[in-house]
Design a protein around this nucleic acid. Structure first.
Lengths: 193, 193
DNA sequence: GCCTGATTGACACTGAGTGCCAAATCGGCA
DNA sequence: TGCCGATTTGGCACTCAGTGTCAATCAGGC
């Protein structure tokens, strides 16, 4: 594979595909950067030119998704309830890079691999930072008040419910739609006395 | 410092104190295991006999706290509302190892250091696993139903609100009590339409 | 003093990740 | 076609957290 004649994006996609195949076959921790570099026909050094960390191979698109969610939230009607706006924005963004059986494998791997789990949560913290300003605006809150925790709490909770739903989705092998599980989690949080 | 004549717990405490002082003085990432070992008069190898990871120096007590919270939750009256029971259990457990100014420094360091932040989140996931069964019992839920996300969502959200409150507490330099911030976060989640 | 079990330190190693520099490639221009 | 400058790549040495192994040391009992 000659890297020179390809676009950066093409190379990124190819390395990702190669690495993901190895991860799903052998496990994340059992696959080393050397393994990936050899399989992709690149050097270790170049691997790190494309990915910040090993985990970013799996989770790299999550940060891009966060921005899509923000855009979707900003596009919601201003008079929509905040919770509904968040929910709908979140569910409007679909990851179509993989089919559902593969998504299930990936979710399982993320769930079972501590470093991936931690990094995915970290990425969700970044989502929080992306989404909170718009929620503050919708609440009519002062953008600069560090003590007004309302928007932070709402965004963080919606993401938490998504994580809880994702775990349940994985456990039932995708038998129940993610949205259904999310709504059940949200209802419990909002309505349980 | 002769290790042989001391109890394991004493040594653990002394290494912790030595390491924490270095972390707060120089920063977590800028302090290496070699630095800590030299300052504590032990070998690197022994350091890892006392601590699983570097982060555990800072966060080691968080797992013990999780069990205290579980015990506190189990001791709440059975007819108390679930949310209130969780809230009260959480706030009944105080970390008294450090004074407040030092706690503030630690929280700031955890907030600003990615590896610490990730590990603290991981520890909170363990809290979730500890607390969820009791909440399921209080909800009258089937302990084995993987699709009943209610207890998971409630516990995860309470912990999330605690994290949001902790961040705000750090930002205001401890000027507003953590409980106040927590209750504001919880109110937003429960009541914002 | 000897024996046994536990603890410690030294050492070599792994794997993720980083900085540096020379080699290689690409594209534009004469 | 060859040259040049800019960019990309690979190789290498290194750092750091973390791990396994084994010999040395210690403590307690007899």
């Amino acid at each position: 594979m000659s890297l020179w004649s390809r676009t950066r994006n093409t190379v990124y996609r190819e390395i990702t595909a190669t690495a993901m195949a190895l991860f799903l076959e052998r496990g994340f921790d059992a696959t080393t950067i050397d393994d990936i570099a050899a399989a992709a026909g690149i050097s270790r050094r170049s691997f790190f030119r494309y990915f910040g960390t090993k985990e970013d191979v799996v989770l790299g698109d999550l940060i891009a998704s966060g921005d899509l969610v923000r855009q979707a939230l900003e596009a919601r009607p201003d008079d929509e309830e905040v919770w509904a706006a968040l929910r709908n924005a979140l569910h409007s963004v679909k990851d179509t890079a993989f089919d559902e059986p593969t998504m299930l494998k990936i979710f399982t791997m993320v769930h079972e691999t501590p470093s991936l789990r931690a990094r995915s949560i970290e990425k969700h913290l970044q989502w929080q930072a992306l989404l909170t300003p718009e929620v503050r605006r919708r609440l009519g809150a002062d953008p600069a008040d560090p003590l007004d925790v309302r928007a932070d709490a709402l965004v963080a909770t919606v993401i938490t419910c998504l994580d809880v739903a994702g775990d349940a989705w994985t456990r039932c092998n995708g038998a129940v739609p993610l949205e259904t599980l999310f709504d059940a989690a949200a209802a419990a949080v909002r309505s349980t006395p």
